[in-house]
Structure formats: structure tokens, C-alpha cells
């Protein structure tokens, strides 16, 4: 006879009843939730020195707040492991300095999603994926940390679709986007250094994004061809709504390598793209988006409008991640602009 196993006590019928109960309460984002109990929340709170009652997220326009304990509750419900909790807290610290997250972003028709970026040795400790399929499924911290943020917005801040949440379509991958930066295969300093921290320090950054679009360029002969390809995707008219935009790149390690081998720093890449990405007044006018109505207009038809206000990391954040197996990168459309700040764990 076999000796008893801890899994003998598992009760799938009871688990299913709990799952349905959680759906019935209206607390879910549409996927099954893990029930949060006082005990499980305490287990999460044990992974931070922060006070459980500290307010870490708020929307003044709705008069609603979330405490560290509320965030722990949602981290449990999202399927996080307790040791992920400091990353969830740091993500809220980062979101709290995102002007557009505070200024109605969660209610917006744009339906933006936070892209959470993890730097430092904690990636390996927790199994945060930074390699192949970095934006896709299969990795628990990547999937559950952003989900915890979305559940907090829904339940603690009360921003629920078809009521105070008015996303026109939302974006694919909303509340599922979290990547580790592949620091080991990047020729450059990590994003967290652009965000004001030391290389090698555990850090979380968040960027609100409106969508991702790929740049598949693997048969190039000259790095400038790849830069032109980035500039073309970044400059497309559909994304143009204001005078300037901010756009990030989740850059394939192979693209980063060829730029570095050509002697380019990350800032050199930024400056090249900022100088070349844009549209003429005639091109924008052709799609009904001419800028001549602005106070410094009107503009000649061949006047070149750059996409970017400047070449700072806040306007063009670059994160190296993904597999080297094909030279594809992802352009991420930033909602407003990145705060330019990364946050340590606490």
C-alpha cells in the first residue's frame, strides 16, 4: 500500500464550488481566481516590511484607495506566490508616479495596460521570463504580477468595465504584460539604470502601453536598415493623436547586439530613431491629422513632424528581452509618457 500523499486531500469538487463562488461575486477579470483568506494574505504580508495599512494606490477622482493589505489580497487572488509580493508593491510604487495612470488612465477609452519590467537577480530567483516568449504565457510571475494590478483596479479602485471603465476595445494582453529584461544578453545597461537605480539592483518599472506591434527584420545587411524599420513602425499615422508621442521598444537581443557591434550605445540608438521617426504635414493631413491647427502652425506640406519630444529614456524606453532565435522586436505604444523612474523592492 502506498503511503499517504499531501495531494490525497485535494478536493476538486470543493475547489470548483469556490471558483464559481468567486465568479458569482463579480470579483473576477473573467478567469478563475484563487480565494484570499486572512491566512494567505498574512503569508504575503510577511514578505514585506511595509505596513499593511499603508495606502499604496489611489484614485482621488473616485475617492478610492488600496492599502498594502488590499494589494496582497489581489496578489493572492491573481495566483501570485507570496515571494512575488514585493514586485507587485514596487509595480504600484511605479504606477503611482505615472501621470496618466492617476489622471484617468484606468477609466480611459484607450484601455491602456501597464507593461511591468523586472531587473536584477530576482528574475532568476523567481523564474521571471526574459527570454523566448517573453510577452506570452507560460511563466507564473510574468502572468500573475500584472494580473494582480488589474484586479486591484477592478475591486479596490472600483473601475469596472461598462461602468467607470470605458475602454473602447482595450488592448490585447491587458493586465498580462510583465517581462524580465535579459540583462545577460544585453550589450547595454539595464532599463533600471535609465530609471535611476544601480545595475544589479532588483527593480521594477512600469510603462502604460496602448499596444504592441512587431518589427521583424532578420535579413538586414546594415544596422541602419533595422533602425529605418523601427522608425517606420514608430512613425505610423494610426497611433498619432497628439503633437508628440512616447514609444518604447522591447528589443530583441540580436538587434541590440548588431547595434552595439556597430558601436552604438543605447542612447545612440535612441537619438537615431528620434531624429528619423516622423511624418510630414502632408502625410498627416492626408489622414486627417495635420497639425496646422496648433498654435505654432500652419506648416508647409513638407514640414517634418518628429514623433518624439526628445531622446530621453522617458520618451523612448528600450528594454532588451526575447529569444535570439529570430530578430524580431516589439514596438510598444506608450500612453502619455514613461515616468522615467524605476523602483527598488521593499
Amino acid at each position: 500500500m502506498n503511503s499517504p500523499s499531501p495531494t490525497d486531500a485535494l478536493d476538486p469538487v470543493a475547489a470548483s464550488l469556490v471558483t464559481e463562488y468567486l465568479f458569482d461575486q463579480g470579483w473576477s477579470d473573467g478567469l478563475p481566481l484563487v480565494p484570499a483568506t486572512e491566512e494567505s494574505v498574512e503569508t504575503f504580508l510577511a514578505h514585506t516590511d511595509r505596513e499593511a495599512d499603508e495606502i499604496i494606490a489611489q484614485l482621488p477622482q473616485l475617492g478610492r484607495k488600496a492599502s498594502v493589505r488590499d494589494v496582497a489580497t489581489h496578489a493572492v487572488m491573481a495566483g501570485c506566490r507570496p515571494e512575488y509580493f514585493p514586485l507587485v508593491l514596487a509595480a504600484w510604487d511605479a504606477l503611482s508616479v505615472e501621470r496618466s495612470a492617476l489622471g484617468g488612465g484606468w477609466q480611459s477609452t484607450s484601455g491602456p495596460a501597464p507593461l511591468v519590467i523586472v531587473n536584477g537577480p530576482i528574475r532568476d530567483e523567481l523564474g521571471v521570463n526574459s527570454a523566448g516568449g517573453v510577452l506570452g504565457p507560460g511563466f507564473r510571475p510574468n502572468a500573475t504580477i500584472p494580473r494582480a494590478l488589474g484586479l486591484t483596479v477592478r475591486n479596490s479602485l472600483g473601475v469596472v468595465p461598462h461602468a467607470l471603465e470605458q475602454a473602447t476595445q482595450g488592448i490585447p494582453g491587458r493586465w498580462t504584460m510583465c517581462v524580465g529584461e535579459d540583462e545577460e544578453n544585453s550589450p547595454w545597461e539595464p532599463l533600471s539604470v535609465d530609471g535611476g537605480l544601480q545595475a544589479g539592483e532588483n527593480a521594477v518599472s512600469t510603462i502604460l502601453v496602448r499596444t504592441c506591434e512587431f518589427v521583424d527584420n532578420r535579413h538586414f545587411h546594415d544596422p541602419v536598415e533595422v533602425l529605418r524599420d523601427f522608425a517606420d513602425t514608430i512613425g505610423r499615422a494610426g497611433a498619432w493623436i497628439f503633437r508628440y508621442s512616447s514609444v518604447g521598444i522591447v528589443m530583441n537581443p540580436d538587434h541590440a547586439r548588431v547595434f552595439a557591434e556597430a558601436g552604438m550605445s543605447k542612447q545612440d540608438v535612441r537619438e537615431w530613431i528620434v531624429a528619423h521617426a516622423g511624418k510630414t504635414e502632408a502625410e498627416l493631413t492626408a489622414v486627417g491629422k495635420g497639425l496646422s491647427r496648433l498654435s505654432d502652425g500652419p506648416f508647409d506640406p513638407d514640414h517634418f513632424h518628429p514623433v518624439f519630444a526628445d531622446a530621453s529614456p522617458a520618451c523612448l524606453p528600450i528594454i532588451v528581452a526575447g529569444s535570439r532565435n529570430a530578430a524580431m522586436s516589439m514596438v510598444v505604444r506608450v500612453f502619455s509618457t514613461w515616468s522615467g523612474r524605476s523602483f527598488p523592492l521593499s
Partner: peptide, 13 residues
């Protein structure tokens, strides 16, 4: 609270 399950919307209500 049902079955010890925390209501995450308690604060927002």
C-alpha cells in the same frame, strides 16, 4: 465573509 474568503471590494463599497 463566506468560508473565510475575503471580499476584496469591501473598501470600494
Amino acid at each position: 465573509m463566506v468560508g473565510g474568503i475575503i471580499d476584496p471590494t469591501a473598501g470600494a463599497q
